[in-house]
Amino acid sequence: MNLSTRVMLNRLTQQCVYKRIVTFSTKTAEHVIENQEEQKKEAPPTTPTSPVNRKTIIPANYRFVYPEFLPDPKVEWRNLVREKLERLDMLDRRKQIDLPEFYVGSVLAVTSSDPHAAGKTSRFVGICINRDRCGLRARFILRNVIDHQGMEVVYELYDPTILKIEVLRLEKRLDDSLFYLRDALPEYSTFDENMEAEPLEEGAPVPVNDIKVVLRPRPWLERWERQNLRGVANIDEYLKDKHRLSAAKVQKPWEKYDMMKDYRSSIPEEEQTEIFAEVHTELHALELQRKRNKRKRTFIKPKQLA
C-alpha cells in the first residue's frame, strides 16, 4: 500500500466515522476497503461535514479509542442502569491506572502482579492479536515467540492485578484480528522483550502497518482462505482448486448491503453520543493528565558536569 492510499484510508475512516458505528461485533475492515474502492471510482472524496451540532464536542475517534465503553448491542442483554454502573466502575479503575489507546497490531508490554513470579510481578511483551468483549470484561490477547515457542496471554483490561500497560509501538494492521499469526512464520510474532517504546508525534494519526505475513504450509488452525485476509502474502501458494471453490461457496457478499444486520450488531449513533457525553469529561481529564505525565517523563534535567 503506497502513501496516497494510506492517506485516502485515513480520510475515509474519518468520513465513515459519521456514517457507520462500529462495535466489536461488526466487521469493519471489509467495509472500509470496499467503500474505498467504490469511492475511487466515483469521485475524489469531499471534506467530511459534521452532521449534527453537539453541545459537548466529543472526539469522533472515541469509539475506536474506547470501544469497550459501548455495550453489547444484543437487545436482550441491555439495561441502562447496569450499563451506567459498569461505566462508573470502569472510570474508577481508569483513575487508578493509565489504560492507553491501543489497537489490534500494536505492540504492548503488560506488567501484572503474579503470586507465582519471582518478584511477584511479571512483564509480558507482545503484539495485540485480538480485542473483544465490552464493559468490565473487555480483554485482549498478546502474542510473542519466546525461545522458539509461541506464547499468548489473555489479559482483561480492567483486571486490578494489572499494574501497568505500556504501548511500545502504536499502530494498526490491515485486519481486525491477527489470529493468523499463529500459522505464520515465527519471525512475524517475535518481539524483543527489552524493546524500547517508539513514541508517536502528538496528534499524528495512528499509522497502519501494511506488512503482509508469510504463512507456513498446511495444516492450519483455521481455514484462512475463507476469511478474506489482507495481511497475508502467500495464501495462494497453499490453495488447491477445491479450497478455492469451497471458499467461494461460503462467501456472503450480500452481507455488506444488509442494513438490518448492521443495525442489530451496532449501537446507534445517538446512543453512542449519549454514552460518551456521560464519560467524556472524565476521560478527557485523564488524557490531559497522561499528556502532562508524559512530558514530565521525557524532560530530563541536564546534569551539571564539572
Binding site: 474508577d92 483513575k95 487508578q96 502482579s113 511477584k120 486490578p160 492485578t161 499494574l163
Partner: peptide
C-alpha cells in the same frame, strides 16, 4: 472484594 477506587492488587513477598 476489590474496590475499583483502590489501587491495583500487589502480592507481598
Amino acid at each position: 472484594v476489590h474496590n475499583f477506587k483502590s489501587e491495583s492488587i500487589t502480592y507481598e513477598n
